[in-house]
Design a protein around this nucleic acid. Structure first.
Lengths: 335, 335
DNA sequence: AGTTGTGGTGGAAGCGCTTCCATGAAAGAC
DNA sequence: GTCTTTCATGGAAGCGCTTCCACCACAACT
């Protein structure tokens, strides 16, 4: 792969030792400013790039982060897909590599090994998998890690999150305030944090208004579009005047079935989702939803991890503000 | 990160030198079988994992492959999404890491640098980007690489492909043979190899039957669902009795619009797509299409790359057989 | 002037691995 | 029985980097 420019070359060109050059380039203290400048110049003019494998081996960082996904399928999981996309972008813009660590049949070994093998400096973990043995195993190995999505039972782990509970409560609250009284909900995969929080938000909205949740309006889903479709008949049977699906995918599934049965949305039933993923799908309509700001989320999570790697500090949990997407599946007052 | 088991430990436990242990573990010649066995035992019982950064630095391989994507968006690109998913799985199952190298604003540097930085042993490149400067640059740097999708002008580069042209021709041929006479086509992004080949297949099917293509039935698209929708009015204006969209996404867009205009599919117009991605989308119907066998494709492409890295040989171009998906958007004879 | 900082600097060690090369033992050839 | 060939084996070098530590110069104190 052609002649490689090493740190030695840079040091020589700058007239300093390799040690000084290394410090200069890595922003370590103990280098005079003019020397630092001189080294930078030399590096640039030689088109130097540090060998990350060597840096890593010598105790530095390889500048590679792993993204641990709680799923092995991307093709029907807009949330995971958007996360991958955004994190990849954010990592690249910070000159970090992104290693994709998907949940695998051989998860136990695979992901853990990538980390053990020293290929990855730190990991970003989708919080939905916290609690699973292979993740606990990973966390126990003390790799620097940041969760996407705070985990209530693990407040000590760094995390970046949107306000699942509050947002869900606001969304459902809006429905209640605009006159809906029988709001059904299709939950996400129970046991997943985001699913629980969104369900909790649903309950909170009711409680805040002194209302009691009719438990027969709570339907258990799994975040997949298919379940939204399949469960729609049951939901319709409960005669709700609104539906809060824990993500847009299930909302889409529900709407598909409802329309097949000639139910008017939002006329007969208002529908709200979560994630905002309906926006990208050219459905012909958009679902009222909470938009996960994936780009901001990803940039933040990468920044938190990178600063953690650099030994810096950051708030344990960083919140990212979500946005309300006023879609076509609810009725909005004029103005 | 706890105590790390090194090759030295393994060698000591097996009662051999580090050199021998290395050779044994890497399947290099010059080690007696019983020794090889003993080393393997020791490694297993110590739960040894080689440090890939060190291996890489020392001239070995890091067992990391890069996946170079021709897009920076996954969320509305089922093809890219499926590719990522399948390649990640295939790589993991072969104990290789997968570095995601998306096309970036700073593509020129980013991807190239990851490779230069020695983080990646070889790359898998989506052939759609061959010809772009940053890719040419990458190829010129002599990194072992394999294309997903053969590139007609670069037959010398290893590639794995499905028969785009032949499959498209078969699909369109089927429409012609079943009585359609005005088949419109919505092409992919012109300039992309797969788009050209599928269009060529469309023409070939006509030629094979001594028919001439009515050029007013050729509509230029870009593989996105939106364009399928937007261009639908024009397409319908040409009064076709069938439509061949260069991928399922555009077919979906077209169908959405056609149905809004109360066109019966497949009654009034038969529609065929490509990729088979409609399968995963719970649309309520499936589009007659050519299924890209992503898992097979991914495994093959990873295998070709890995064997290339190992210095082995492979056919320059490997073809993977696609499958016909008999969907609901064309009419099939009974039986 | 003598002493104690202070902070920039380079020498050298060493991260864990692969591979070159010299060594030595075993096996075949004369 | 000696001489060569073959092949497994271990010693040692070195991949490119970071960092420890000793060093030195200079400034700021008694």
């Amino acid at each position: 792969m052609a002649d490689v420019v090493t740190l030695d070359d840079v040091a020589r060109a700058a007239g300093v030792s390799r040690a000084a050059a290394s410090r200069a380039l890595n922003g370590r203290p103990g280098v005079r400013d003019d020397v630092r400048e001189r080294v930078a110049q030399a590096a640039k003019s030689l088109d130097y790039r540090r060998n990350r494998a060597a840096a890593n081996l010598a105790g530095g960082s390889a500048s590679v982060i792993g993204l641990v996904l709680g799923t092995d399928r991307l093709h029907d999981d807009p949330y995971a897909t958007s996360l991958v996309e955004s994190v990849a972008r954010a990592a690249a813009s910070r000159d970090h590599g992104l290693m994709l660590l998907m949940k695998e049949p051989n998860q136990t070994t695979s992901t853990r090994n990538m980390v053990r093998d020293g290929l990855v400096d730190g990991v970003i973990i989708s919080s939905v998998v916290v609690g699973e043995p292979w993740i606990e195993d990973l966390l126990a190995s003390n790799v620097p890690s940041v969760l996407v999505g705070a985990h209530p039972e693990r407040p000590e782990i760094y995390s970046v999150d949107v306000e699942n509970l509050e947002s869900a409560a606001a969304l459902v609250g809006h429905l209640l305030d605009s006159g809906c009284s029988r709001i059904a909900t299709i939950t996400g995969t129970l046991g997943r944090v985001d699913a629980s929080l969104r369900l909790a938000g649903y309950r909170t909205a009711h409680e805040q208004r002194g209302l009691t949740v009719d438990e027969s309006l709570v339907f258990v889903g799994n975040f997949r579009r298919g379940v939204g479709y399949d469960i729609a008949d049951d939901v319709l049977g409960a005669a709700p005047d609104a539906v809060f699906a824990a993500n847009d995918e299930m909302a889409i599934g529900f709407i598909d079935r409802a329309r097949e049965r000639s139910v008017d949305i939002p006329g007969d039933i208002a529908v709200v989702g979560f994630d905002g993923s309906s926006m990208h799908q050219h459905l012909g309509f958009t679902i009222t939803s909470i938009i996960q700001p994936f780009d901001v989320l990803a940039e933040t999570v990468v920044d938190v991890l990178v600063s953690q790697l650099a030994g810096g500090e950051a708030p344990t949990t960083t919140m990212v503000p979500p946005t309300l997407l006023k879609g076509d599946t609810t009725i909005w007052e004029i103005g």
